[in-house]
Structures are given as structure tokens and as C-alpha cells.
Amino acid sequence: MKNIYIMLHFLTLILLVLIMGSCSQMRTIPGLPATHPQALALGQQVDCAECHEDQQKGSMKAFNSFSHTPSFIKNHRFYAASDDRLCSTCHKSSFCNDCHTNKVEMKPSIRYGNRPDREFQHRGNYITLHKIEGKLDPASCYRCHGRANNERCVACHK
């Protein structure tokens, strides 16, 4: 196992040397704009394909992939893990951190009780349901309550 860590450290050093050598060429590589040039309506399920048919110059991914379909919203973790830089052109980080953070003050569905159209976990009687849902898919609990935002879980699960 120690060999793996030594290899990782060695790899990190090589990469640092690589990036230093490549800095001079970075100016030729396109990047995403800092912000979306046009404001989007509140509550709008964004369909990127309405305006964009091509690929983003910055990430080389098809705009069509990022249309906010029900599938995209339920599986947004896949997209954010690879290209959260694109997310940040429209969303402030706080949009993500209302749910994904180290310490959540209240259930997002309570904080945004005026927005029942938004997808939130743990609506209604989840305090009962978590005893079933946690057995179905414990990994889905861990993603948010594993190493962070877990003080209320640990209060009972000792």
C-alpha cells in the first residue's frame, strides 16, 4: 500500500513539472465564459438545445447533454463531477450548497417551501421513511451525510 502512495506522490511531481512547461501554451486553449451571457427565467427548465446545437468550446461537450431534463436533474451529480465549471456559469455555488454542505441548518424543502416545483430530497415524513430508504441504498445517504453534515445522523446511529 505504501508503494501506491509513493507512486501517487511521484506522479504529482511529474504533473507539476508538466503544467509548468505547458503554461506558455495555455493562451491558445479556449475556455468557458465566466457567466452565461443571458439571464434565465426563474423556474425555467433550461433546454440548452433551444439555442445551442454545437459543442461548448471550453469543455468540448455537447450543449444538448446539459439540458435540464428530469433525468439530468436526478442525475446531476455525474455532470457536476466532471464539469462544475459549466454549472457555475449560471448557478452560484450557494445553489448547490443549500443541500450539499458540511452543515445544513434546515431541510431545503422547508427553506424553499414556496418552491414545490424544485427537486428536493426528504420532503414530508422522511424521518420515518429514512429507516426504509437507508437500507435500500446506504450509499445515497453517504454522499451527503457521510463525512459531512452527519451530526444529526450520529445522534441516533451510535
Binding site: 504533473l15 503544467i19 495555455m26 486553449i29 458540511n102 452543515k103 459531512a148 452527519n150 451530526e151 445522534a155
Partner: peptide
């Protein structure tokens, strides 16, 4: 985070994990 030539990209981070959760009795 930086994009590099030839389709490569690199990101790195370092620091301290955030410790603002208080676990009762711990």
C-alpha cells in the same frame, strides 16, 4: 485547475478539511 495542450487537463487542491460539525459526546 487548468486546461493543458493536447487535450490534457489538471486540477489539484490542498488544505485542511472543514471541521465545523460537532458530534455529540465526541
Amino acid at each position: 485547475r487548468a486546461g493543458l495542450p493536447m487535450g490534457l487537463g489538471l486540477s489539484a487542491f490542498g488544505g485542511a478539511p472543514v471541521h465545523n460539525v460537532h458530534i455529540n459526546g465526541e
